[in-house]
Design a protein around this nucleic acid. Structure first.
Lengths: 133, 133
DNA sequence: ATTAAATACGACTAAAATAATCGGATATGC
DNA sequence: GCATATCCGATTATTTTAGTCGTATTTAAT
């Protein structure tokens, strides 16, 4: 309940790892996976998603890997969550909505306010805030 | 991801329903379940948990049911979550901790800060805030 | 007393979400 | 050409959440 996913966790660990290296160094998935004991394939797919969304840059082929493409100051946690998991919705009615209850529901509005508060919190948290401290 | 559970949702709906009735009226699980289309048994168990923790009072036997025992102003959302789901932990290392990573982990501290921010948010949200708006 | 309607509660099953793996394709440095 | 990477869809395994079942107990009404 109210848990972030492993994928997200792995993404943060990886970004922090990459950030810790020399600016132009290309870091392979394998290096990150072994250093932090993360399942290689899962990390690979996660990094691919980040590359597709221009957070990191992929360099293919032997000696390939990734490096940062954007400063982590300019990416917020909410954007990362969107990329990896879609929009935050603490209850089904917060995001899409095909709830059985519909108009019967007596708590939708307040729940949506809570949802917005959480979104706003993650909007105001840059990835640098997480990877630098 | 970052979802509240149905149990919690049902609890909030039920509390709001009870609060909407005349102060001393005893409300049965069945009434709430039917009004809001909630699976009876699941709601029953949820209300039993709330009763055990003195948020509502159970009246047994025919014509039994529940009524509020505490003012919802005096209970915060975090307490309700604790009762129904245990402590909030957005990642495994936030709550207990038998993470494979342990000291290898490079994001534990910032994640814990995020966790605390969420806890604090729910600490400052009373059930009345949710059930009255 | 008996019955009906309610809470109490442990055990179980079903469904959904998440985590992880597999298999093959493509790119590139040596 | 081979080793080592990213790329990516499909599948399987695991875990968590949701829901059900069966039974016991309590109490009002008859």
């Amino acid at each position: 309940m109210l848990k972030l996913t492993r994928k997200l966790e792995y993404a943060l660990i990886a970004l922090r790892h990459i950030q810790g290296q020399a600016t132009e160094k290309i870091v392979s998935t394998k290096e990150i996976a072994e250093t932090h004991r993360i399942p290689l394939q899962l990390l690979a797919k996660t990094l691919q998603q980040l590359a597709k969304h221009n957070i990191i840059e992929a360099i293919q082929g032997a000696h390939g890997g990734y490096r940062l493409k954007k400063s982590l100051d300019n990416i917020n946690m909410n954007a990362l969550i969107q990329i990896l998991e879609g929009p935050i919705g603490i209850m089904d009615c917060s995001a899409d909505s095909n709830c059985v209850q519909l108009d019967i529901c007596n708590i939708r509005k307040p729940i949506n306010r809570v949802n917005e508060a959480i979104v706003s919190m993650f909007d105001n948290l840059t990835l640098a805030d997480i990877t630098r401290h």
